[in-house]
């Protein structure tokens, strides 16, 4: 059973094509990794799936709703964590949780959530004063409120230390039910290897859709395969390589 069905989706910003005639199915009850380099179109795709952006062409069905016309109804069933999540830094940890619970119209056991996310000792601290990893945990906790059917996470582990990354993954796996669908956008390929399904996109097109283990058995090999799919790594063309090899001319 599919949570998301996308057919021939195109999204343009002016003359720039962000999503290019993309078709995709996302299976219910699975964690799907949305993988791609910066600018590949991951954020645009997530935003279009939940109706925050309107597509130029194509059809989308999410949990039986059309996000173009039924965004408000769809919002009742999803949890969306944007890349730059909207924490109110002048509200405390607990106040942020309570606010998002009210805005989603859900009752929640905040003590349990705070305990589980290890944020309980900091519940009265302003969220602006939290470390980067703790902020992300709080963002994820706000997103998970109300146990949404479909969870969309836009690069939640960016800028987070490896321990906190594992914590975030653990939080998601333990808080969701077998019916919950997760779409987790990431640029970290080792992280993506642990998902049920991987969707690799490049320049707004799907270039791989399947189980990560089917592509490669280990995270390292998976990374190499995905890079190959994206056209391979050309050291000579790499900006970093160019800069690394750069030598100042003799005066």
């Amino acid at each position: 059973m599919q949570t998301v069905t996308i057919k021939n989706l195109t999204k343009k910003f002016g003359s720039s094509v962000a999503i290019d005639n993309l078709s995709l199915n996302i299976e219910k009850g699975k964690i799907t990794g949305l993988i791609g380099a910066d600018g590949a179109g991951k954020t645009t795709l997530l935003r279009t799936i939940i109706g925050l952006l309107l597509p130029n062409e194509g059809e989308i069905n999410v949990l039986g709703f059309d996000p173009k016309t039924q965004k408000d109804e769809l919002n009742l069933h999803i949890g969306y964590m944007p890349q730059k999540f909207g924490l109110y830094e002048d509200l405390t940890v607990l106040e942020n949780l309570k606010l998002y619970a009210d805005l989603k119209g859900v009752a929640h056991d905040f003590d349990k959530m705070l305990e589980f996310t290890t944020l309980a000792p900091f519940q009265d601290r302003l969220s602006g004063a939290l470390s980067g990893g703790m902020k992300q945990k709080l963002c994820l906790a706000c997103t998970l409120l109300g146990n949404p059917e479909f969870l969309l996470l836009d690069e939640p582990s960016v800028g987070v230390d490896p321990i906190s990354r594992r914590d975030l993954m653990k939080m998601v796996r333990e808080m969701i039910t077998s019916e919950t669908t997760v779409l987790w956008s990431t640029a970290y390929l080792d992280e993506a290897h642990s998902f049920d399904t991987a969707v690799v996109i490049d320049k707004g097109k799907v270039i791989y859709e399947g189980k990560p283990h089917d592509l490669a058995p280990t995270p390292q090999e998976f990374e190499n395969k995905v890079i190959d799919l994206m056209g391979g790594y050309n050291q000579e063309e790499s900006l970093i390589a160019k800069n690394y090899d750069y030598k100042a001319p003799d005066v």
Partner: peptide, 10 residues
């Protein structure tokens, strides 16, 4: 970025 989060609630 708080608006983007608000827009995906009720």
């Amino acid at each position: 970025g708080t608006m983007e989060a608000l827009l995906s609630t009720k």
